[in-house]
Design a protein around this nucleic acid. Structure first.
Lengths: 198, 198
DNA sequence: AGGACTGATGTCATCTTGTGACATCACCGT
DNA sequence: ACGGTGATGTCACAAGATGACATCAGTCCT
């Protein structure tokens, strides 16, 4: 019946977010989502690969910004990746804390969604590593710098989203990057007691 | 009909591995697997949470060995995690390259299985981080050391499984750990050219 | 204007995953 | 022999996901 709905994709995403928040992911059927958007279940599946994808449309923008930032930055591999994430913090996540928190709480409530998020993160990492290799960075270095950078971002992001956190994402990224450097720096010689720098 | 099959779980795992290899994961139904094991679909679901789990039974052993190794090792956090993975390389993966390769090629063929693997790796990391914290290591340090260690292992593992690789997993882990240290070490000051230590 | 084409959508049928409810049967201790 | 107990088979079914086909708006071409 419902012929010709403008921006079907956006409507479905909004409907999905609402319903997931109201009843939870598992308790929401694709038919429910489509109905709220005034569309058919089949239309949902034409626009999204599966039920979970309705929550992960932002990934594309994230990847674009990240890859572009990597391409434009001229520094050592790991520093380049960290710089790219700083840009993402500014350009993509600025002013979105509230929305991000809602999204994240939905994801935390469903193992299925967590798996999907992990996969998205993985493909993001692959794209970043590719961007690094395109700049002439060696395979191994590119992979390790990327994975380390992603780790820094993930930990910083988790802290940022956590309830009661008031630090900025950028600051958290910088902090975690410093911590990671400290943690992975060459091990202190066996016996001595030299204090590790803060 | 088929009453009382010994080691139903093992039979199902074997059947699943065979079928996944023969036809691929998606082309295999749970009913197929159960039939080949001489059991019913319902029995499969009583022993495994879902179709993918039949491929991931080894995870439990892995986690046990890893957590035990972390608890017993007395060194800096990152070094402890790396040492634990060295033990895993010896105790769990020794002499299993061929089987691991088959398994991995199946996983590579299915996004769904990749997601599950990511999740397994994630929960493994959580367990390791918890073991580290139990030794008095701080939250942030434990997380970053664990994630870095897992990254090292994942990259080493990927290399080890890759066709045409003849290096040992242990050697690859050591190599990747060294590389990661180099990659994340403090950035060279802008202008100077001081060689970074090997 | 009229007709063909295209693209997005609805409808229907079907397969598969995963689960609840219940029936069965072997085995075990008494 | 009897009554548990536990693992299994049978049946039914909701929901996810997909293919095949119908429909209809708007567009382009003559």
């Amino acid at each position: 019946m419902t012929r010709w709905q403008p921006d079907a994709r956006g409507r479905l995403e909004a409907a999905a977010l609402e319903l997931f928040r109201e009843r939870g992911f598992e308790q929401t059927t694709v038919t429910d989502i489509a109905a709220r958007a005034g569309l058919d279940k089949r239309t949902f599946y034409r626009l999204f690969g599966d039920k979970r994808e309705a929550l992960f449309s932002g990934g594309k923008l994230l990847e674009e910004v990240l890859v572009k930032a990597v391409a434009e930055t001229d520094a050592a591999p790991f520093e380049t990746v960290i710089a790219a994430f700083h840009r993402v913090a500014d350009e993509v996540f600025a002013d979105r804390l509230d929305l991000v928190r809602v999204r994240q709480s939905i994801i935390e409530g469903s193992p299925e969604l967590q798996e999907r998020e992990l996969r998205k993160t993985g493909s993001l990492a692959a794209a970043v590593a590719a961007a690094l290799r395109a700049k002439g960075v060696g395979e191994t270095t590119a992979t390790l710098a990327t994975e380390s950078g992603v780790t820094v971002f993930r930990v910083a992001f988790a802290r940022w989203v956590a309830p009661g956190c008031d630090a900025s994402l950028t600051d958290l990224i910088a902090e975690m990057a410093a911590e990671l450097r400290a943690v992975t720096s060459a091990p202190a010689v066996p016996a001595p007691n030299a204090a590790t720098p803060t």
